[in-house]
């Protein structure tokens, strides 16, 4: 898979994003890392130009409830409904339901393992093959619960 790993907004901590990028690479994926402080518009443009299958958003700044829905809306507007979006970083439990409803398919908080993320992607591939909804603009309802 081609996967974009992005850091939206004002957030200077990317150790986590780099670890994830590397784990995904070792899982046989082509990973495009955006670098720090990208706007939702920039992230969507990168996903488009790179023709990515999936997007991982890492945020530790507390602005997840603004930035992630914005990315979700823009992806749909651009017709990138098939892109699978997952998130990681510091995202409180109370905020997760809302993000799942906006089409985010998995949220990996502290304590998640890299193999869990690869397991998630395996299920994603399986769902794509079976034409089950998994993209950001496809019918919500399914999300990864480990």
């Amino acid at each position: 898979m081609r996967i974009v790993i992005a850091k939206p907004g004002l957030d200077g901590h990317d150790r986590g994003a780099k670890v994830i990028a590397r784990a995904l690479r070792d899982g046989g994926n082509e990973v495009i890392y955006t670098g720090l402080r990208r706007t939702p518009e920039e992230i969507v443009r990168i996903v488009n130009d790179e023709d990515a299958d999936a997007l991982g958003l890492s945020t530790l700044s507390g602005a997840h409830d603004v930035l992630i829905p914005k990315v979700s809306t823009l992806l749909r507007q651009e017709g990138l409904n098939h892109v699978v979006v997952f998130a990681g970083g510091i995202i409180p439990m109370d905020d997760r339901e809302d993000l799942y409803n906006k089409g985010i398919r998995a949220i990996f908080g502290p304590g998640s393992t890299t193999s869990e993320i690869l397991d998630f992607l395996e299920v994603v591939v399986e769902r794509k093959v079976r034409n089950k909804p998994v993209g950001i603009g496809e019918e919500s309802g399914w999300c990864w619960d480990g």
């Binding site: 995904l24 082509e30 495009i32 890392y33 443009r45």
Partner: peptide, 22 residues
Amino acid sequence: PSSPISGGALLGDRMRMVNADS
């Protein structure tokens, strides 16, 4: 480069091109 072992790759060129995304 792609990994000769996993076939995966970490593509990190565009992060250095600061105004490439806007």
